[in-house]
Design a protein around this nucleic acid. Structure first.
Length: 742
DNA sequence: AGGTTAGTAATTTTT
DNA sequence: TTACTAACCT
């Protein structure tokens, strides 16, 4: 508030949003004319620059809010930018073209839908729908799905779209040899199907819009007139079609400002091309390049370690992070060698407990892993020792079954031609309409080139018995709901639809423990519906914007993948699993070679630079993968850390572990022996810990402790099998020898 | 039509 | 190990 008051009232003095910038940041904000690339290292105030620049454009009178196009990758980033711009302006910023690539393209495409063969109410398909549609296309083309998986074809199509290639633009050189060279044919058929069901997938939003700008000069000119300034966040993550889209739009004013960090490009596997940022000067002649290297986040040792590591990469524009404050002190990085993944989880858990005892906040600690499955071991350990945690980036709200079902109902209501949605709900709840019946609808739909819904209507009278009755009722209901929506509005109608269709009833009758939660989610969905003035607006929101409903707040440790951690920061960051094969990930290396290794290294860099004060890297000598144990060696990235900035813990014993054969070496499924930890007087000795037999039997009502599940109470004893109700993990049946009396 | 079983595959995933 | 899917049975 004070900021903008000053911004408006100052005489001669600078507005506060400029005054608090360092010289480089300030140049990035004030260089308004022509292309600008801001190379913003981790923690150098990237968001501050972006928002100050946005506000500066408006406050200096260079453009109205509607004349600035501001693009981000995530909804979160878009929200944050909107909020911070509004804070500088001291009023909510309205009429902004600020959003994700996808949301902005969807907004544009709705206006020009007809030009690409869609109706303005087209559906935006998520990954699941895409896959089902493509599967149908491939089945129709007679492709053996066991030899040529749908997933693989999906990836190929996505890659085409990422590169701005419509089926007609795919050249033989860019084609793949999938299904005996039939990929373009399938791609083409898939696009035809999308138009037939009046739908676009995520990739289409960008591709269709770019194609439109490429081929229709008057549409392009319209946007050139409109947008005077373009701002782009996370430019290093753009793919080719996003780049083309931006370049087309920027041809108008030339005032494009891209902010990014080539060292944090970690999405090549999703089509991102780091070359876009490396090539910026060539693409936009006369571009100003501004480097932000003053880091306001981390201590000197963390910055030194991250810089030292990333210097091993070849393909980079080159920047060096410098600590902003003179604070050269700070804890060294800890590098811990451990015996196995269980010990790693225990150690991390113990460190977290210790830090908490020392007064650190759990919300300021994060465990960052390479792959999602690694979080499980830490979750189990944290449950056992009673430390609250959250897993960031798990299942999304809208990916839940009941939400997708309910949305399918809404989609059929909104757009009866949406075959995928219709297919999903035609027999949900069970109406006795099985494969055979559905197949006949499909045949009719194909033969008459009508939507499935129309086919069902046409064939309903020809059905017999229960099917005829149930289908008749469903179709009559839809007609009625469509009628009702004009009268009662979309919220009441949707609620009525979910009840009257029998969908809610289905979950009420469901005895599974998840059912009540699903009903609650459905109620939440209807509640959320009230924030929108139409069903269509809501469906777009869910497809493009809605995110995890999990509360981010609270005193909890965060567990997530390194990818999910980009853009976040914590006082303490645990980086477990730094082992060859896991990190750098072998599979990534197999697929992408040297380039992939550099991307893995960038991922390590991202991980380290998340830490403000403390980073703890660990590696385990043995890791359980599925059922059996596998030996592993510490990651090469550990060797790339500067020895002067790290303190090694257990390194000696780790070396000995690899040198000496252990007793009972790697019997699949069996616990390996364990080396006594550093600090013990028996350090270096082998301890093979057999599970001791239970001395005393457990009784009903006993309080017990389990390594994985924590504390609980015995509910039932059946020989050596015991039912326990755990305080945190629910009821489990297990063998008594895994329990300790508490 | 719907439930059961055997076989198979398991990174990262802002939209 | 688990989780999911495709053939298989009732």
């Amino acid at each position: 508030m004070a900021d903008s008051a000053e911004a408006h009232t100052h005489r001669g003095a600078e507005p506060a949003y400029l005054a608090r910038l360092n010289p480089e940041q300030r140049r990035a904000v004030e260089t308004l004319d022509g292309p600008v690339l801001v190379l913003a290292g981790a923690g150098t105030g990237k968001t501050r620059v972006l928002t100050a620049r946005f506000a500066h454009i408006l406050l200096s009178g260079r453009a109205w809010p509607g004349q600035v196009l501001a693009v981000t990758f995530t909804n979160k980033a878009a929200r944050e930018m909107a909020a911070r711009v509004a804070a500088i302006l001291d009023r909510p910023a309205e009429g902004l073209w600020l959003g994700t690539f996808h949301a902005l393209c969807a907004r544009m495409l709705r206006r020009h839908a007809e030009a690409v063969g869609l109706k303005p109410n087209f559906t935006i398909l998520d990954t699941d729908d895409q896959e089902r549609l493509l599967k149908q296309v491939m089945e129709a083309a007679g492709i053996d799905h066991r030899r040529w998986p749908v997933r693989a074809m999906m990836a190929i199509i996505q890659r085409f779209k990422d590169r701005g290639l419509t089926p007609g633009r795919v050249t033989p050189a860019e084609d793949s040899d999938f299904a005996g060279g039939r990929s373009v044919e399938i791609y083409h058929a898939y696009q035809q199907r999308l138009l037939a069901v009046n739908a676009a997938d995520f990739g289409d939003l960008l591709l269709s819009m770019t194609e439109l700008l490429r081929t229709q000069p008057e549409v392009l000119a319209e946007y050139h007139r409109k947008f005077r300034f373009i701002l782009v966040d996370e430019y290093q993550d753009t793919n080719l079609v996003q780049y083309l889209w931006l370049r087309l739009l920027a041809q108008g004013s030339k005032n494009i400002c891209c902010v990014g960090d080539d060292d944090q490009s970690i999405y090549s596997w999703r089509g991102a091309e780091i070359e876009n940022i490396l090539r910026f000067e060539k693409d936009f002649p006369g571009a100003a390049i501004i480097r932000l290297e003053r880091n306001y986040r981390s201590t000197a040792p963390i910055l030194a370690a991250a810089s030292h590591l990333i210097a091993n990469n070849e393909g980079r524009l080159g920047k060096t992070l410098r600590p902003a404050a003179a604070a050269s002190e700070g804890e060294k990085l800890q590098v811990i060698s451990l015996w196995d993944s269980d010990e790693e989880a225990r150690t991390v858990g113990a460190r977290i407990e210790q830090l908490r005892r020392e007064g650190e906040s759990l919300a300021e600690m994060a465990v960052l892993v390479r792959a999602g499955f690694q979080t499980r071991a830490f979750e189990e350990r944290l449950i056992a020792i009673g430390i609250p945690y959250r897993v960031v980036g798990g299942a999304k709200f809208y990916e839940r079954q009941e939400i997708r079902d309910a949305m399918a109902y809404m989609r059929v209501l909104q757009q009866p031609a949406d075959d995928l949605a219709f297919e999903r709900i035609i027999n949900l709840p069970r109406r006795g309409i099985g494969d055979t019946t559905l197949r006949s609808f499909h045949a009719h739909a194909r033969a008459h080139a009508v939507p499935l819904y129309a086919a069902a209507e046409a064939l309903q009278p020809a059905q017999k018995g229960r099917v005829r009755e149930a289908l008749g009722e469903l179709l009559r209901n839809f007609a009625r709901w469509r009628d009702q929506i004009a009268r009662d509005g979309h919220v009441a109608t949707t609620a009525a639809m979910l009840d009257e269709s029998g969908y809610t009833e289905m979950w009420k009758n469901d005895k599974s423990p998840e059912a009540p939660g699903r009903l609650e989610n459905l109620r939440e969905l209807v509640r959320a519906l009230a924030d929108f003035d139409s069903l269509g607006g809501f469906l777009d929101h869910v497809a493009l914007v809605m995110e995890n409903d999990e509360a981010a707040e609270g005193e909890r440790v965060s567990l997530m993948t390194l990818h999910a951690a980009k853009g976040l920061e914590f006082d303490t960051v645990f980086l477990p699993g730094w082992e060859e094969g896991l990190f750098p990930n072998q599979r990534a290396l197999d697929e992408g070679g040297a380039r992939a290794l550099e991307e893995e290294r960038r991922l390590a860099y991202v991980g380290l630079t998340r830490a403000r004060r403390r980073a703890i890297v660990s590696s385990a000598a043995n890791r359980r993968i599925y059922a059996n144990w596998q030996a592993s060696i510490p990651s090469r990235f550990i060797d790339e850390l500067p020895e002067s900035e790290i303190s090694r813990i257990g390194a000696d014993s780790a070396r000995r572990q690899h040198a000496a054969p252990a007793p009972g070496w790697f019997v699949p499924g069996q616990r390996p022996g364990r080396l006594i930890e550093a600090g013990s007087d028996r350090q270096g000795a082998w301890e093979v810990a057999p599970r001791p037999a239970r001395a005393e039997a457990l009784g009903v009502g006993d309080r017990v402790f389990h390594q994985k599940f924590g504390y609980g109470r015995v509910m039932l004893v059946d020989g050596e099998k015991v039912d326990v109700r755990f305080e945190k993990a629910g009821e489990k049946k297990l063998l008594d020898r895994f329990l300790d009396k508490a």
